[in-house]
């Protein structure tokens, strides 16, 4: 965690002293936005990979239940993906608002 805060502090240290408050806010927002989305994508990435892998395994073992597995898989993906999408919304808020 300290490595992350150090990285953020290093980026902020490069802000020239004469930068206005708006510019400093934009720089801090942009660096924070990238970090926020990057971190938010890790968990759902692992989750969706695991979920789809298990679904493929289930479909390979029981091809006759493929339709039902597929519907449930999409449901699970929708729930897992929501976390990454909230991270994306945070990215938009930090970067553009």
């Amino acid at each position: 965690m300290s490595a992350l805060t150090n990285a953020a502090a290093e980026i902020l240290a490069q802000v020239p002293a004469e930068a206005t408050a708006d510019e400093a806010k934009a720089i801090a927002g942009a660096s924070g936005a990238g970090m926020a989305y990057g971190l938010a994508a890790i968990g759902p990435g692992i989750g969706i990979g695991y979920l789809v892998g298990q679904a493929v395994q289930a479909m390979a073992r029981q091809p006759e239940s493929a339709g039902q597995v597929q519907t449930t898989m999409f449901l699970g993906i929708a729930f897992t993906e929501a976390l990454a999408l909230i991270g994306f919304v945070v990215f938009i808020l930090l970067k553009f608002v």
């Binding site: 929708a78 729930f79 993906e81 929501a82 999408l85 909230i86 994306f88 919304v89 938009i92």
Partner: peptide
Amino acid sequence: FSLAVRLFANMLA
């Protein structure tokens, strides 16, 4: 909230 954000963020992305 998650219903709305899921659709919105997917399409915006």
